[in-house]
Amino acid sequence: MSPVWYAARAGVRRGWTELRQTFTTGQDVFGYVLWTVLLMVPLFLLKDDPLKGAGISTGAFMLPSMLGMTLAFTGMMTTAQLLATEREDGTLLRAKAVPHGMVGHLVGKIIMVSGTALASMALPFAVGVFLVDGVAQQGGGALLTLLWVVPLGLLATLPIGAVIGSLVNNPRTIGLLMLPVMGLVVISGIYFPLSELPGWLQTVGQIFPVYWLGLGLRSALLPTEAVAAEIGESWRYLETAGALGAWAVAGLLLAPSVLRRMARRESGAAMAERHQKAMQRVG
């Protein structure tokens, strides 16, 4: 076996180890639960509010949309956050110091973030499905949609996250990025159908993967008649695959060179400097 493959396999083990760690760390588990609670509050409040002409409640519309949003958030923001943090605390430098350690680190991170995304979606889904009516009741065929939307969603968002994480030079910047992301959620048709927004905002919303992930998840989990609330009264599978695919291709083209550039710049001195800055901020 070539050393690169060997490192990739070490990376797979690394990913599983880190997943096990996050699910057994109190603080992380609290985070998953808190996220679920935050999503469930509006869902609960609007579970009996009918969505005009769609035959479902606004709560039922929200559940799959929020799952799509969770996937997009985790793929982009968690990846960026982890990368920036691990650059600051020296995890990446350690990876760089062992042979093909960066390969292992990257593979591990992909598994770790994907697993985290699935868990962050599974928990609200498991709770929400009992809160609202009409979600995930159209049988196997529709659920099969998940099999391509979810992996494609990860493929579209993880590389973007990696690029963001490589470009920001301290993890706290990611916190600032949350503001524009909140705005993005408003125009992505998560809490109410995008068709209720003015036309130009609809166009802007449809550029980003958050909308398409919401749509993809709704197509898989909502009853057929709920399509009435969508733009053009269609699930637009082709466009979903096209938009997410385009983000995936762009991200995958961009990420390797950005990651390589970032890795090349890592050194003990660079890290010590960041450490010092972070300490000054604390002190």
């Binding site: 060997y6 490192a7 070490a10 083990r13 690394r14 180890t17 880190e18 760690q21 996050t22 760390t25 691990e86 605390d89 020296g90 995890t91 430098l93 350690r94 110091a97 062992v98 042979p99 093909h100 350690g101 292992g104 003990g268 890290m271 010590a272 450490h275």
Partner: peptide, 23 residues
């Protein structure tokens, strides 16, 4: 390396075995 707080969730043996496996 002068570590700071990396791999905080890892156990000592776990991390040494993992990093060693690359060699």
């Amino acid at each position: 390396l002068q570590s700071w707080r990396d791999h905080g969730k890892w156990r000592v043996r776990e991390l040494l075995a993992h990093l060693g496996s690359y060699y």
